[in-house]
Each structure stands twice: as structure tokens, then as C-alpha cells.
Design a protein around this nucleic acid. Structure first.
Length: 488
DNA sequence: GTAGGGTTAG
């Protein structure tokens, strides 16, 4: 057998060790082979890095620093893995690596999975940073990705960042569709910035986009929320002119708003219009009307309405039941409340909703508990529990507002990158592997690289932040000294 | 390699 024929065998062995979870054994094998006779390819290194990333991010990260010191940035695939990994650990460091590679004129694109992982993990600001830093993703981010980013930014209260993303996009040759604009319009509306939202709506024609049904629903909702009900009805007319039939959603928004401001008659009038136009009422319609009757104190009307819709197979949703029962208990009509509660606790959607809360809170059976309270006739207690659940399901609908508490995040990210630039240079200075190889102890129970005995710093994170702060305060020599000492 | 993934209610 020639030496060359061992190579795939070694790769295979390392790959399988990683696959079975023996990452450290794989690492040990890799190191002995690599150092002694260079028998393995970069594929081995890749599978080890992947294994490390899967198994223990922290340990993986610590090893990453050592790895890059020992082996440098090997080839494109390894580089990609390293950067991807760095990105998922800390976007700032990932961005640093990317900038470093751009300097070296290396073509480099990050897999889009990095972006998606950040988004799914709720690391929206980090995803945002990667975007405005012009990271190349492959395949490139498309309009759907940007829509999701902007939506999450708005919903997270990062309004400035959402708007920055919009202006960033205007410079790009990405064709934006109506869903994208709907998302921006909704974000603006949710912040109470209706004028800007309507400006955008009015500009749609210029862009050559027709508003969709959702566009109208979003804007009508916003007008209703801000109690511009006259304008909401006018926009409904405009919606019809555009060829849309207002859905129950639109009518419901109006009913909800009219009942909220105590305009009971107007709410009823809208519900009549809904029926006249042949629009199908739904659980929102009943619930909104029950709210209106409740506000009015007309519990006879509420019960009658409930019975009517019930006979048509339309039940209120959770909040609708709460409105009804609140109104009844307020009048001391506990027996009727109990009757309604019994019916409510038998409906599948309601039970499922309570069960969902259950699984979040703990293993106790909330549903069983409420049934028990109901049968004991302890209606007030039952209603208290239901109210509590209601506030869990329907928290305040308005998004949080940018309040400047995100100072660190709103800084231009170039600052952060340059701050860690020098620190990272030390930690990644490639090629000087000889003196570091000995620090890797991959024997039994090995969980992370040992730091030199001369150092008092046992922890990579501590070391790293120390080096960063020294570099940023200009004490580069001292940082250098500490690093040398540590890795001796 | 691909498709599919995105927006609207109290």
C-alpha cells in the first residue's frame, strides 16, 4: 500500500469518529496524523469542526482560536466553516473574518443558513448587522428574506434598523413586491406612524404595484386602532373601488373599534352591513359583538346573540367567551356564567388553547382545574384563572418602541469591528504553529485546550475580553505580552 | 442541487 492510499482511509476513520460523537478522539487522531506525516485532507478537519460545532459550541470556539493559530486558514472549505462557525458564535467576529478575507481579495460567500439560523434563533439584530455589512450570502438573500428581517425588526421595536434596511434595499437591484410593502406599512402603522404608512401606500402606484387585500386590511386596521373610524370606512370604499370585497376581517375591525369606544349602535350597524353583503361572520364577529353588548351592559342581547350564532355553528373565541362571562358575573348572574363556562370548556379550540398554555407553564392540567372550579360552582375563581390565561394569550398588541436602550447596537458596526481587529489579529495570526501545538492536550477527559502554566488566566473568554479591552485602550504591547505568556 | 419560506384582528 502506498502512503497516498491511506489518505481516504484516514479521512473515513475521522469522519466516522465524528459521526459517532467521538469528536475528541477524531481530533487526537487528526493531530497525530497531521503533525507526523500529513496523511489527512482538509475534509477531516471539516468533519472535526462540524462535530465540535454540534457538540459543544463553547469548547468548539475555544479550539477554533487554537486551530487557526496552528493551521492558519487552510483552504476555502475550511475557511468557510471557520467563518460560518465564528458567525454563529458572534457576528462581530464573523464580520471581522469576512473583512479580513476581502482584504486578501478572496472570493467568499457565507451559506444562507447562517442568516436563517440567526433569524430562527431570534438574533435579529445580528442578522441585520450581517446584512448592512454587505456580507455576501449564497444563495443571495431575496425579497422574502428581507421581508422577514424587516418584519422581525419592526416587531422587536428596532424601528430605525428596519427603516435602515429599507433604504439599504433601495440601493439594491432587488424587486420588491406587495407583500414586502405590506410588511413595511404594517410596521409603520404599529408604531403609530400612519402618515408615513399612507405615504408609502400612495406611492405604490408610482412603483407600479397594486395594493393587495392585505394592504387595505392593514391600513383599515390601523385607522380603527387609532380611532379614525370615518377614514377607515372611507378606505373601505376605496378598497371596493379597487375591486376587492371587504372580508369579515375588515368588518370585524370596525365592530371591534366601535364597541371599544362605546358606539354600540354603530357596531351593530356594521354587523348588519356584513350580513347584507353576504359576508360570512366568524368567531371574531361574535366576539366583537359580545364585547359591544357587554360594554352596553345588555346581557340579554349578548345571550341572545350567543344563542343565535351557536345555532349557526359559530362560537366565540377565547376572548369572546371572556367578554360574555365578565358581563354576566358583573351582574351577579353566576348560574348563567357557569352554563356558558361549561359549554366553553367543551370546545376543542378552547381546550387546545388552554392545553398549549399548560405545556408552557408546567405539567399540571389547567383545563381540569378550571372544570373542577366550574363544577364546584366557584365561578369567580374560574373567571380569575381564565382572565389570567387571557392576558397571557393576548398581551398588549402594540410593538415596543425604540427607546435608545440599544445604544450598543445602534452604533455603526465598523466601530466594533475595528475595536476587535487588533485583538483578533493576535488570536488568529496564522502560520506560527510550532509553539502552540504542544498546548493541545487531547488525552482522556480532555474538554478544552489548556492554557500555558505561566498564565493565571484559565478561561478563554476572560482572556479574550482582556485582550480586546487592552487593544482598544491602546495597550497593544501589554496584550501581546499576555498572549505570549498564556500560550507559552 | 432545489423549493419554499414572508405581510393583516380585540
Amino acid at each position: 500500500m502506498t502512503v497516498a492510499s491511506y489518505v481516504p482511509l484516514c479521512d473515513w476513520a475521522i469522519y466516522n469518529l465524528c459521526k459517532k460523537g467521538h469528536v475528541y478522539s477524531a481530533l487526537e487522531a487528526y493531530l497525530s496524523m497531521e503533525i507526523n506525516c500529513s496523511l489527512v485532507t482538509n475534509e477531516s478537519l471539516c468533519s472535526i469542526l462540524k462535530g465540535l460545532a454540534n457538540e459543544n459550541a463553547k469548547v468548539g470556539w475555544r479550539l477554533l482560536g487554537v486551530f487557526t493559530k496552528i493551521f492558519g486558514l487552510v483552504d476555502n472549505e475550511v475557511k468557510k466553516l471557520l467563518v460560518e462557525y465564528a458567525f454563529l458564535q458572534d457576528v462581530k467576529i464573523g464580520l471581522y473574518f469576512v473583512s479580513k478575507m476581502d482584504l486578501e481579495n478572496l472570493e467568499f460567500a457565507l451559506p444562507i443558513s447562517v442568516f436563517k439560523i440567526l433569524m430562527e434563533a431570534g438574533r435579529i439584530l445580528e442578522a441585520y448587522k450581517s446584512v448592512i455589512s454587505e456580507v455576501n450570502f449564497t444563495p443571495a438573500l431575496d425579497v422574502v428574506d428581507f421581508t422577514m428581517l424587516i418584519d422581525r425588526l419592526f416587531k422587536g421595536g428596532f424601528v430605525n434598523q428596519a427603516l435602515s434596511t429599507c433604504s439599504f434595499l433601495q440601493k439594491k437591484a432587488i424587486s420588491l413586491n406587495i407583500v414586502f410593502y405590506n410588511t413595511v406599512i404594517n410596521g409603520l402603522c404599529r408604531q403609530g406612524r400612519l402618515i408615513e404608512a399612507f405615504r408609502l401606500y400612495n406611492s405604490l402606484e408610482l412603483i407600479g404595484l397594486a395594493p393587495s387585500e392585505v394592504t387595505f386590511c392593514t391600513l383599515i386596521d390601523a385607522l380603527c386602532r387609532e380611532q379614525f373610524l370615518y377614514d377607515a370606512e372611507a378606505l373601505m370604499g376605496e378598497m371596493i373601488l379597487h375591486g376587492y370585497t371587504p372580508s369579515s376581517r375588515v368588518y370585524n375591525s370596525l365592530i371591534i373599534s366601535y364597541s371599544k369606544i362605546g358606539k354600540f349602535d354603530a357596531a351593530l350597524k356594521v354587523s348588519k352591513e356584513l350580513e347584507v353583503h353576504g359576508v360570512k361572520a366568524d368567531k371574531f364577529t361574535v366576539s366583537a359583538l359580545l364585547n359591544a353588548y357587554g360594554q352596553e351592559g345588555d346581557m340579554e342581547g349578548a345571550l341572545q346573540l350567543y344563542a343565535e350564532f351557536k345555532s349557526r355553528g359559530i362560537f366565540p373565541d377565547y376572548l369572546g367567551f371572556l367578554y360574555l362571562m365578565r358581563g354576566l358575573t358583573a351582574k351577579g348572574r353566576l348560574e348563567e356564567t357557569q352554563n356558558i363556562l361549561r359549554q366553553m370548556l367543551q370546545l376543542r379550540p378552547i381546550v387546545e388553547l388552554i392545553d398549549k398554555i399548560d405545556s408552557e407553564v408546567g405539567p399540571e392540567s389547567l383545563h381540569g382545574f378550571i372544570v373542577q372550579l366550574c363544577e364546584q360552582g366557584n365561578i369567580k375563581a374560574a373567571c380569575t384563572v381564565l382572565d389570567e390565561i387571557g392576558s397571557m394569550i393576548h398581551p398588549s398588541p402594540r410593538f415596543c418602541v425604540d427607546n435608545g436602550s440599544l445604544q450598543e447596537e445602534s452604533k455603526p458596526c465598523g466601530v466594533d469591528i475595528s475595536r476587535i481587529h487588533e485583538a483578533a489579529t493576535f488570536l488568529t495570526s496564522a502560520g506560527k504553529l510550532e509553539s502552540y501545538a504542544g498546548d493541545l492536550d487531547v488525552g482522556d477527559g480532555m474538554q478544552e485546550p489548556k492554557f500555558g502554566k505561566g498564565s493565571q488566566i484559565q478561561d478563554f473568554d476572560t482572556l479574550y475580553s482582556l485582550v480586546v479591552s487592552l487593544c482598544s485602550s491602546g495597550e497593544v504591547k501589554r496584550a501581546n505580552q499576555i498572549l505570549r505568556q498564556t500560550f507559552r
